[in-house]
Design a protein around this nucleic acid. Structure first.
Length: 666
RNA sequence: GCCGGAUUAGCACAGUGGUAGUGCAGCGGUUUUGUAAACCGAAGGUCGCGGGUUCAAAUCCUGCAUCCGGCACCA
């Protein structure tokens, strides 16, 4: 053990310093500016408190606000601690549990004192004020290492039962780190933290909401109060973030769905969509698009029953595994007139389909299938009903009745990789046609699963190989494997779309399933004349029409590409003298296949422009006396910054027809 | 399903124990208008549903339903 340690800085220079020197001291030695700016250190690539002594030779980099990702993480984590301290200061008896940084801020889960009930948003202003007090006091955060026993004892003596439980159950047998912060407030934490609360900008955070959250994320556990905040390095960043939230709210498909008259939802059919004429145009355009795409890929479209006998669901395993999400109906007329039982004791039950797969196997099983019939690719715009937990319902994104662009490929073992690879190519083309970038993830075997380890090894390898061969297992495609996230019967490849404001949505999937063909006894005759079990690939690209349309609305902020826009052009008159001409233009547009309407109302052109702009009509063709005389239109594109352009009717039609052509037909 | 909040005219919202209001839309009229809201007028409501307290309830209490924000679950 030497008393000197060798510290290597990012520029390659080296310094010999006494063991126990802190990164803060080294920063000070380099210069006062750096000393002030340094928030934390990276020691051999690991984030370190700036006050934590260096005990060995190391690569050292000082983290400043310029290292935004690390700096934000530190700041948010500090805000979380201060939040918890503030809550305990204001509401004695509150227990603390866990409080991490998030993508845009932080939260802390606390258990409110039994005497007062859960926290509400009304409590937030007081908590924020207290947090600012703690920040202003500018007290240092100090790291200490405690023995597990001492820490458990401390938590127990303070009545912190959640912390005590957690300290006892943290894996490993090492000592635990704690931090003192604020007004001698202790939390168990891996760190790192800033040197002092004064490093935080008291105007750079805002508490945003309160909600319930289960202790350790488990429904069986206590419900805690989760207090959310957003936290940044400075007020400018915070304001920019709040503005982004407002912009995101303007894209909300529920709001745009109403403004654009696309669909509605109502109490009497909650979780099921009423598609209005405008919205159903989008829906049908997508159906047509998908039919062309999958037919081109060698699939055959089928349609299967909405309701099947419960015995069928028993055999497929859904009755046992999925019944609580299924709508079950008696196969008799329920007695609703008398007080007696609604259904007879020996009632037969049926259920609305929550998935299409069993029905597709039943089609496969009709007649004898030869190895020559494989791969057999069945697709269906399959309308499914799932009785989702009520708290999960959300606009078009989570509904109880939805239509999947579902499909099942029945194939031999040796065909799997080719089929998956072809599917990757198909999905790639579809997502690019809609302007999405995406990432692909492989969800690996979950804890609870059917089948042998060998089967899972095989299934995971097949899917991985197919993506590698399709050239998509790269960083560009966000390739990632997710341990434990697969379905109980199969690993899943998942396609996650990234939308215009950076959010991700899981839509497409392909899964290789050997369980369901077994349960429903599907087989084909092989070259050897023997019966064999086909593998079943479950696959979808949109996922569901409902959710995909929701994503499209938000991605485009309602300004759908012309080929999807419900109304592609409105011909608006300035004076009633142009009415006949407007009708003529619309007739020509309609004849060319454009969804066009007239607006002959007795309103000023300003009014019409505003109204059709808000309705997100992509093309407004303005006609007055001049245009009627000259046989032209003044084309105004959606978005007021683009100037209008006077064009001939034929010119406009040619342009609109080009834009209204679906991307796969261009 | 769990925690919290909400539900008033087609839409957005005000109204906290004493005669239900505003703006926009819709309807009738005037205006013929050149690129994001012309003017005037008359209408429009079992205040989510049920029960209770009160002389009196949109308002207070209570049960239920739906919605919103999260949690858990998920296409």
């Amino acid at each position: 053990m030497t008393e000197q340690v060798k510290i290597t800085l990012p520029d390659g220079s080296q310094r010999d310093v006494a063991r126990g020197t802190t990164p803060a001291e080294i920063a000070a030695a380099i210069g006062p500016g750096l000393a002030k700016a340094a928030l934390a250190a990276k020691v051999d690539g690991e984030l370190y408190d700036i006050m934590r002594p260096l005990e060995a030779d190391a690569q050292l980099a000082l983290v400043t606000a310029k290292d935004e990702k690390d700096a934000l993480e530190l700041v948010r984590h500090d805000f979380a601690h201060i939040l918890a301290e503030a809550v305990q200061a204001l509401f004695p008896g509150t227990q603390i549990t866990f409080g991490p940084a998030t993508d845009d801020g932080f939260y802390y889960d606390v258990a409110a004192p039994a005497s007062r009930g859960p926290f509400t948003e009304e409590d937030l202003p007081a908590i924020e004020a207290k947090m600012r007090e703690i920040i202003a006091a500018d007290k240092p955060l100090r790291r200490e290492v405690w023995s597990r026993e001492a820490l458990i004892e401390r938590w127990a003596s303070q009545g912190e039962s959640f912390k005590a439980e957690w300290a006892a159950e943290l894996p490993g047998d090492e000592d635990l780190t704690v931090y003192w912060s604020g007004n001698d407030w202790l939390d168990m934490c891996r760190g790192p933290h800033l040197a002092s609360t004064g490093k935080l900008d008291p105007q750079a955070f805002k508490l945003t909401r309160v909600s319930g959250a289960y202790w350790r994320g488990d429904q069986k556990n206590a419900m805690l109060s989760r207090i959310y905040g957003t936290g940044w390095l400075n007020k400018k960043q915070l304001d920019a973030h709040l503005l982004r939230l407002e912009e995101a709210a303007k894209r909300d498909h529920r709001r745009l769905g109403q403004e654009m008259d696309l669909f509605h939802l109502q109490q009497e059919a909650h979780g099921s969509v009423f598609w209005h004429p405008n919205g159903y145009v989008i829906y049908r355009a997508l159906e047509d698009y998908m039919r062309r795409a999958v037919n081109g890929a060698g699939s055959k479209e089928v349609k299967t029953p909405q309701v099947m006998d419960a015995r069928q669901w028993e055999q497929s395993g859904h009755w046992g595994k999925y019944r609580e999400n299924m709508f079950v109906i008696p196969d008799e007329t329920p007695n609703i007139e008398d007080d007696g039982p609604m259904v007879s004791n020996d009632a037969q039950w049926m259920a609305l389909k929550p998935m299409n797969c069993p029905a597709h196997i039943l089609i496969f099983k009709q007649g004898i299938k030869s190895y020559r019939d494989l791969p057999l690719r069945l697709v269906e715009n399959g309308c499914c009903h799932r009785n989702e937990p009520h708290g999960a319902l959300h606009g078009l994104m989570r509904v109880r009745q939805f239509t999947q662009d579902d499909g099942h490929i029945f194939c031999r073992e040796d065909q799997i990789v080719d089929e998956v690879q072809d599917f990757c190519k198909l999905a790639d083309r579809v997502y690019k046609d809609f302007g999405f970038t995406y990432s692909i993830k492989l969800a690996l075997r979950p804890e609870k699963r059917f089948g042998t380890e060998e089967m899972w090894d095989l299934a995971e390898t097949e899917l991985r190989d197919a993506v590698v061969r399709a050239g998509l297992a790269t960083e560009e495609y966000g390739w990632e494997e997710l341990p434990g996230e697969g379905a109980f019967y199969a690993p899943k490849l998942e396609w996650h779309l990234t939308d215009a404001i950076g959010r991700t949505w899981q839509v497409g999937t392909i899964q290789s399933d050997r369980v369901l063909p077994e349960r429903l006894d599907a087989n084909y005759v092989g070259e050897d004349g023997e019966k064999h079990r086909p593998v079943m690939l479950h696959r979808a690209i949109f996922g569901s029409y409902e959710r995909f349309i929701g994503i499209l609305i938000e991605h485009f902020a309602g300004k759908l590409p012309v080929w999807l826009a419900p109304t592609q052009a409105v011909v608006a008159t300035i004076v009633s003298d142009a009415d006949d001409y407007a009708k003529e233009v619309v007739a020509k547009l309609a004849a060319a296949g454009i969804r066009a309407e007239t607006d002959l109302r007795n309103e000023k052109i300003n009014y019409k422009v505003r109204e059709h702009s808000l309705a997100k009509v992509p093309n407004l063709l303005v006609v007055g006396r001049r245009e009627a005389e000259e046989g032209t239109v003044a084309l105004r594109r959606l978005g007021s910054d683009e100037h209008q352009k006077v064009m001939t009717v034929d010119g406009v039609i040619a342009q609109l027809v080009a834009e209204a052509t679906p991307p796969d037909l261009r």
